[in-house]
Nucleic acid binder design. Structure first.
Lengths: 164, 164
DNA sequence: TTTATTGCAAAGCGTTTGCAACGTG
DNA sequence: CACGTTGCAAACGCTTTGCAATAAA
């Protein structure tokens, strides 16, 4: 983790320098909080973690910093189904991946599947559509929850009822 | 269109009857507005259209009615990327489909591809994950916008793009 | 008549913004 | 020193909720 942070910090510095913006203590803290936290953290989670090291940091600063990270290509915004809030995931070092979201415990796993991506391109091409990016999420029960384990039962609640 | 509406209305009636709820003029209007409007309508769009026939209808009624339709299996909630608001699409008569979203004009096309779905099942199965439903959206430029046509340039804006 | 429903306005919630104080370059 | 940044609080936009009046059944 230590190294990911310094790579990201360097990238941020470049970005800032390139536009006359400034590197600040707060932005560093938010960056650390963002990368240290479990992937797919919400602003609140990042905010809490950032405040652990610097209790004066405000919500607005975190929002602004995350916007900056997205612009700098360090973070990607995600809006999962039935979850009003935005979540962020690291954008560096990662080739594209998709998500498996457990509707019971809220666990989010990642996967990638080139065959699916290829098919997507075919579908789009057939309609003259140029894909810039995509989003694929599979919702259901993770192995643990299927096994009946009585877990945390987190936020993400079941939603309408479509099937596969 | 006339027939889709009556099928949906019948389904709604059943649902209401089954739980001691009531069929009202407003719910009918909202149902018509929802089904008449282009697919993927937001609450505001449905609200406007419903008010065309009944200017007294309030926002709250539309929100409540849409919640009811989702519960009754008539509508499905959708939350597209970079669009804070919820959109609804008809859930009846439709086998599952996915979306192509144009990031310039906001156009939303539908498609289905069994091969992709099968691969998704494989990915999930490999992790012991039981898929209940999924969401696949391809974002980019539609054929018209690629051709340089100067269209409406609607709401949906590209994902990152914040300043600070 | 009973009680679900409505419309309004107020409240909620996540996110954004105005502004004076502050800190980086 | 200039000007980007911060924290606070107020503003926002979408959605939900409390409540007295209304209308299905």
């Amino acid at each position: 983790m230590g190294d990911r942070v310094s790579v990201a910090r360097e990238r941020l510095r470049e970005y800032l320098r390139g536009r006359g913006l400034r590197a600040t203590r707060q932005r560093d803290r938010v960056l650390e909080a963002f990368l240290a936290d479990a992937a797919h953290a919400s602003v609140d989670e990042i905010y809490d973690r950032a405040r652990a090291g610097d209790p004066a940091i405000g919500h607005a600063t975190v929002y602004r910093a995350m916007g900056l990270f997205v612009a700098a290509g360090i973070a990607k915004e995600r809006r999962f189904h039935a979850d009003g809030r935005v979540r962020y995931e690291p954008a560096l070092d990662v080739d594209h991946h998709d998500h498996l979201v457990c509707t019971r415990c809220g666990d989010i796993q990642e996967f990638e599947n080139p065959a699916i991506e290829r098919l997507q391109e075919e579908v789009a091409a057939a309609r003259g559509f140029a894909v810039a990016y995509h989003r694929l999420e599979l919702y259901g029960l993770c192995a643990r929850c299927r096994a009946g384990e009585k877990g945390p039962e987190k936020s993400l609640d079941e939603q309408s009822g479509s099937r596969v």
